[in-house]
Amino acid sequence: MAIEGVDIVKAAAFIGAGLSMGLGAIGPGVGEGMVAAKACEAIGKNPREAGLLTRTMLVGQAVSESTGIYSLVVALLLLFVV
């Protein structure tokens, strides 16, 4: 099986896309879970502020999500643009 240069580059882009999204999903997944755990704790301690706490949780998670979205963008760039 002869491997050409273009083929090797494409193969690397595909593996790279998989690694980018796969590894990139670990951090936000764990981080957002931590946020949710602490939000539950805070609501347990102070149920009256549940609405405020949920909002804070969602904003925090949205920020933490951003690196996951960067990974997705890089993966899609590797798949379709490069």
Binding site: G24, A25, P28, G29, E32, G33, V35, A36, A37, A39, C40, T54, M57, L58, Q61, A62, E65, G68, S71
Partner: peptide
């Protein structure tokens, strides 16, 4: 809700 967001990745 928290789990749903964490699920997104």
């Amino acid at each position: 809700v928290g789990q749903a967001v964490s699920q997104s990745t």
